[in-house]
Amino acid sequence: MDVLQDEILKKFGEHVKNLRLKSGLTQDDVVLNSSKITKATISDIENGKRNFAFTTLIDLAKGLNVPPKDLLDINFD
């Protein structure tokens, strides 16, 4: 991965983790709510280590109990 992509993934991961914590959810809660996402995937996303498919974004939103648009409400400047 290139440096810009790494930074984007890290920032997105921080955003996902903040949404999860704000909702009072653990990574295990997200797994239970989603049924299609694993704890390892959530961990990798939150740590900026995974670039993933759009369908994973939808599953992640379901697991976090938020609309997908909330995951994309982030400023990458």
Rank of each mutant, 00 (worst) to 15 (best):
K36C: 08
D73S: 15
I8V: 15
L64A: 10
S43A: 12
T26N: 06
D6Q: 12
T38L: 03
S23C: 07
L71G: 09
K62W: 01
L64P: 09
I58E: 14
L32F: 11
P68G: 12
V66C: 10
N51Q: 15
G63V: 10
F54D: 06
T56V: 10
D44F: 06
T41S: 14
I45H: 15
D6V: 05
Q27K: 10
D44H: 13
F12S: 00
V3F: 06
F54P: 12
I42E: 13
T41C: 11
K69M: 03
L60K: 09
L57T: 12
D28C: 07
R20L: 03
N33Q: 11
L72A: 13
V16A: 08
G24I: 03
K10Y: 00
I37L: 15
L57Y: 06
D70C: 10
N65K: 14
L19C: 10
I42Y: 12
K10C: 02
I37N: 08
V31I: 09
K62V: 01
T41Q: 15
K11G: 02
N51I: 01
K39M: 09
I74G: 01
L21K: 15
V3P: 12
N47Y: 04
N47L: 06
T55F: 06
T56E: 01
K49G: 03
A40G: 10
F52A: 10
S34H: 07
A53V: 02
L21W: 04
V66W: 00
I74E: 00
G63K: 12
D44T: 07
Q5N: 09
G13D: 05
A40P: 13
E46G: 14
R50G: 03
F12N: 00
D6M: 04
K11R: 12
V66I: 15
T55E: 00
N47D: 07
V3S: 10
K36P: 05
K49D: 05
A61C: 06
G24H: 07
L32R: 14
Q27S: 11
K22Y: 08
V16F: 01
K10E: 05
Q5G: 04
D70G: 03
F52M: 12
R50C: 07
D6F: 00
